[in-house]
Each structure stands twice: as C-alpha cells, then as structure tokens.
Simulated assay, not measured.
Amino acid sequence: MAKRNIFKKIKQSKNLPQLPQVMLKLIKACNSDETEIDELIEIISIDPGLASKLIQIIGSVYINLPKEVNNIKAAVVYLGMDTIRNIAISTSAMHFFKFTKSVPEFNINQFWYHSYKCAVLARKIAEENDISNPDEFFLAGLLHDIGRLVLLENYPDEYKQILKTSSSESPILAAELEKFDINTPELSAWLFKQWDLNPLIADSVLFINESIEQIESAFPHVKIVFISNLLAEQNTLKNLPDLTALTDILGSRLEQILISAEKEVHIMAKSLDINLDGTQDKSCEEALTSKVKDLSLFYGTLQNLLHAREIDSVLDVVQNGFK
C-alpha cells in the first residue's frame, strides 16, 4: 500500500481529524504574557460545548472548590489561569480520543493515559528549561500518536491483524510500515503539518521513537518530546539513567517532575470520567494520595496571589483558597 495512497485516502476521508480552532486560540493566548483573564474566558466561551464541559469538570468532586461555581470567571479566580488553561485545552482535545469501537482490541483509555502523561511531561520539561511556548510541547505530547487513531479509523480490519500479532511499540511500528508504507510518527507529523503547526513541533513528533544515540545530537525540542514519551511509558523510572545524557536536568529532578505529572494526569482522568484501572504506572502510584486535591488548589491559589495587586485582593484570595 503506497504512502501517497494513504495520504490521499485520509484527505478524502470523513475521518481526517481537524484541530479545534478554540484550542489553537487558547494556546496562542496562553503563550502571551499580555493575555488577561477576560480574554481567556472569551475564547473558551466561543465553544458552548467546551464551556459547559469545563463548568462540569470544575464542579466535580475531584476539583472540590470551596463553594459552588457556575461560571468560568469565578473558576479562574479560584483555580488560576494556568489550571483553567490546562483543563480547557485538554477538554477541547478530547474529541480526538472518541473514535468508534470497530477495533475493540485497542485500549483507548490506556492510549489516552500515555498521551496525556506525555503532554504534561513535555510542558513541564519545556518550562524547566525556560523554553518559550510550552503549550506547543503539551500539544505535541498529547497528539504525538494521533496517526495511530487515524489508521485505526480508516483501516480497522488491517489494524486488527497488527494488534493480533504485535503487542509492544517496536513490532507495531514495523507492522505499520509493512502494511501501510507509513508508521504512526510519520502520519502524526504529516497531520501536524496539515494543521499548520510549528514545523519544529512536527519534527519532534516525527523522531519520537528513534534511539537515544540518534537523539543525542538532535535539537532541544526533539529531545524534550522524546524524553517525555519515554517517561510516559510503564515502569518508567528505569529509563531515568539513560535519559540524563539528553538533558541538563538532574535525574532526581526528573523523578519529581514525573511524579507531579502523574498526579496531574490522575486528576484530569477523574474529571473526564476516564477509567485508568490497570493503566497507571505502578512506579508512581504511591504518589497518588489524598493530597492531590490539596496540591491542586494550593497551586491555583498561589497563581492568584502572584497576580493580586491590592491588599484586599490578596486577602480575598487567601480566604477563598485556603478554606
């Protein structure tokens, strides 16, 4: 099956995913230091479905705000712009993970878990390295395997055969090349280009499954997404010693970032009603305690304190955030 025929069929297919314009606007706005709360709220409000879902998530027991919140502006006051941004972008992207049940052998919850964990890690590592536009790395991590979903949607029978004979990533990628003349990273990178995303981010997706030796000489953006993908794998702590050659971040700090990311994934999964039973990384599971909720609210309150300009505002934030 020739690669050009794959691209042609996918372009003509109803199953060609489109990147939500709201998500693009959110990312652009959040990458600007001049974005105000009202501007963020206005962007979210463009999509009534997104706004409604966001209110539903904010009101869930897993977020557990100190009082009932029925509008986005009030939610921003309590949780902070960064938290609302992450929830909004993640919610907007959920339609990518709602595909048909034509291939029941494929575990979509496990797929989401790995993708979202890779996204959170990529953003955190980009921030740790003071890289501009960290949300682009979040998007790269979140959608780095989107090509697999497109293949599943357009070629369900062929992909069933792949899943029957291959269970780990390397054999699956090899089987994709043999059957389709293209693999998941190549198709994902192609989709990123179709969406007119940053070419550097498309490259980071394209090279995400190369060897560590090949990545050592790569550009920083490629290294960040590569590291995030490996850290998002099961029992990932064993990969830490190998990854230190690719970054100036100490192994102990990478472990802290990993545990923090696991907590964030756990909260988002609960908020979106995604069952992660049997998919979570056992090496980080002990970090997922009842303190997750308290940490989430603490960071939101801290964000608000940093933006408070008057003493009355500071007192209001403290009173609401630490009840």
Results as ranks from 00 to 15, higher is better:
177 L>W: 10
171 P>G: 03
174 A>Q: 02
220 P>E: 13
221 H>E: 14
183 N>W: 04
191 L>F: 07
209 N>K: 05
183 N>M: 08
217 S>E: 13
173 L>S: 00
168 S>Q: 00
188 S>N: 05
162 I>K: 00
150 V>F: 05
179 K>N: 10
219 F>K: 13
216 E>S: 14
181 D>R: 10
225 V>Q: 02
228 S>K: 03
161 Q>F: 11
148 R>L: 15
187 L>P: 03
146 I>T: 10
218 A>T: 08
212 I>D: 01
138 F>P: 02
213 E>M: 12
155 Y>E: 07
162 I>A: 00
151 L>I: 12
179 K>D: 08
202 A>Y: 06
162 I>G: 00
206 L>G: 02
134 P>D: 06
169 E>Y: 00
170 S>W: 00
137 F>N: 03
214 Q>Y: 12
187 L>Y: 06
201 I>A: 09
140 A>L: 04
223 K>H: 08
203 D>K: 09
163 L>T: 09
155 Y>G: 01
200 L>Y: 15
204 S>K: 02
193 K>I: 15
205 V>M: 04
135 D>V: 08
165 T>V: 15
153 E>D: 14
167 S>P: 06
143 L>K: 02
135 D>N: 13
162 I>M: 02
185 P>D: 02
134 P>Y: 05
161 Q>D: 15
139 L>G: 04
148 R>K: 14
168 S>I: 00
175 A>H: 02
152 L>K: 03
200 L>A: 13
146 I>W: 02
161 Q>G: 15
209 N>E: 06
181 D>G: 08
173 L>D: 00
196 D>G: 09
161 Q>H: 14
194 Q>G: 08
178 E>Y: 13
186 E>S: 07
220 P>Q: 12
195 W>V: 05
178 E>W: 10
141 G>S: 10
214 Q>P: 06
163 L>D: 08
165 T>K: 10
183 N>C: 12
185 P>M: 03
140 A>E: 03
152 L>V: 12
181 D>N: 14
225 V>W: 01
159 Y>H: 10
222 V>Q: 07
220 P>M: 09
223 K>E: 08
158 E>K: 10
174 A>G: 01
139 L>R: 01
149 L>F: 04
189 A>D: 05
178 E>N: 13
221 H>N: 12
174 A>C: 05
186 E>L: 08
208 I>S: 11
